[in-house]
Design a protein around this nucleic acid. Structure first.
Lengths: 180, 180, 180, 180
DNA sequence: AATGAATGAGCATTCATTCAT
DNA sequence: TATGAATGAATGCTCATTCAT
């Protein structure tokens, strides 16, 4: 028994994913979300307690989606160095597919302050998971090197968003290749 | 020719600087700006064509301020490597002073899309200037190394914002120290 | 034939009683009623045709409850004057117990207009019953005096609500005592 | 220089007066107020900080209006007893003119709870002023009698609203007449 | 009898901008 | 140069009610 094609909750999540990611959290009004999801206003609040709750649901959804996509790339090989290279290739790929919109988590981070603790935590968890994932691949390397790889990976994401160009991914990839 | 202590334009710019930086562009309403600046609503539109124009003025103002502060640190020494180290110390310092609010330009970047071309350009110019400045200090090094330093510098900024912690600055600094 | 401890209808009525009385009819949303009653939304409409029907049920329920409580006080004695005095003591008592929330019927009256005829009628019936009850105790007195007692009784209720204080009950009681 | 015929603040106040009085505070939406006042939505918030602020302004406005009207009646004579009788005649008159809508202050009171302290205070002040005014007319009488007159006056208002009939005014008037 | 999902209309409030003075 | 008044559109959210199960 599959989910109904018109499952409102999923449609809201899909729409929020697209809008929050592409235009930002505050620039996206609840009106636009429900209009594009084809759902009644109150139905949103039936499934999500607030706009912030929808944001958190989006981040968790995106977390799953993003990691699945990353692993699809890294698991093509078993060698650590090649896996890390594949991770940068993955960045290259989503830059193309998502038009250099950058990291959903870092983008949302910019809109949050210390009082948005619940959101901050989801973002931090995501990044901790990424750092742990890269660290796990590089299990035999020193911590300093693991961190360097992680930082270059992060920089590659945000700088390619900034310049709307792949060069930061390529430069970071080259640098990491030299380190391993 | 001094600026009046109650110069409305400057007060608006100061207030916008604080608010746009600390709570974000869209989260900051024109009401709050004029209230905290102690200026009449229409006076804002006398000095700035629109909210976006105020944003751009803020970014340009911040650009000047930020570079001046950076240079105050780097110009304490003449040796390239020490200058780069000083740049990271500068990051450490503003993280403390500005409570890990990160890079004003990257934060605003996250709220912009391709249709905000004018804003994007100011942000890109700022980062190009930074990249050129670091590149100029490392004039004798290869381009790949210059880029690596720049990317680690950027990563240090955004990751310390993310974790509300100095470790990314320290790790990036160490890594750069090893490269030079 | 006992009512089940979890009888939804009774729980709705109890909850509506508390909320309509303490915060008013319009200030009380159906959401709050079903949440605090622990009942499904549609169950409310199974037992009551509309929010107004629930209001009327509440008023009728309250009518019964209130008169029972009044009679518990007045029936402690057989002498008419003492019975009237007991009625004022009853007011004093519920003011304490219900924190000066006043008369449920007069409160709801304030929220109603001529088009809420069904509700108005229940309220008027209640007051007519009260007037008749006091009149019955004072059966040997003239109509004008009966009315004066009734009016002072009513004033005692609403004015103690207004001032959050017992003095209107005490003054009215004294005045009535002098009249009889 | 007179107030402009289209003074928005006054139009809002007039409209709020009519609507809050005739249909109640919570039953009256901001939409209806601005529509009937012929004023833009944001203009309301230019002149009044919130709906509650508008309510308080209405109560203060009504206070002035009501007392002026009362005094117009009582000042027709100089004799205390006749002044009190005139006060009851005033009640009779506004019952006709305002279709038994009762006392604006007691009606709003019914919609308020202890947390609406600011509103409660305005209502209590109004009633204290009324009590003082009647007390001042009856300056030579004992306090108990003053209170009795006040209570009967209050009862006359609310009971004629309840029954949509003048009899409570007439009975209270007769009772007071007998007391003086 | 009982329920969770869904809805369109409405809530109070704030938005960025313009205008007359 | 400076301002208070005014505005239409949008904000996030809740309303009372109905429906399919």
């Amino acid at each position: 028994m599959k989910a109904k094609i018109s499952d409102p909750r999923q449609r809201l999540l899909d729409t929020a994913t697209e809008l929050f990611y592409n235009q930002g959290y505050r620039a996206t009004g609840i009106n636009q979300v429900i209009r594009e999801a084809g759902v009644a206003r109150a139905s949103l609040y039936l499934h999500f307690a607030s706009k912030e709750a929808l944001l958190i649901a989006f981040l968790q959804y995106r977390h799953q989606y993003w990691f699945d996509a990353l692993k699809t790339w890294t698991e093509k090989t078993a060698k650590p160095k090649e896996q890390i290279m594949a991770a940068f290739d993955f960045l290259h790929d989503i830059n193309e597919k998502e038009h250099f919109r950058g990291c959903a988590f870092l983008n949302i981070l910019s809109e949050m302050t210390d009082k948005d603790a619940a959101v901050l935590q989801v973002i931090q968890e995501h990044k901790k998971d990424l750092r742990a994932y890269l660290g796990h691949i590089l299990v035999k390397e020193k911590q300093a090197l693991k961190d360097q790889v992680y930082l270059l990976f992060e920089a590659a994401m945000i700088e390619s968003q900034l310049y709307r160009h792949q060069w930061p991914v390529q430069e970071a990839r080259k640098a990491v290749s030299g380190l391993l």
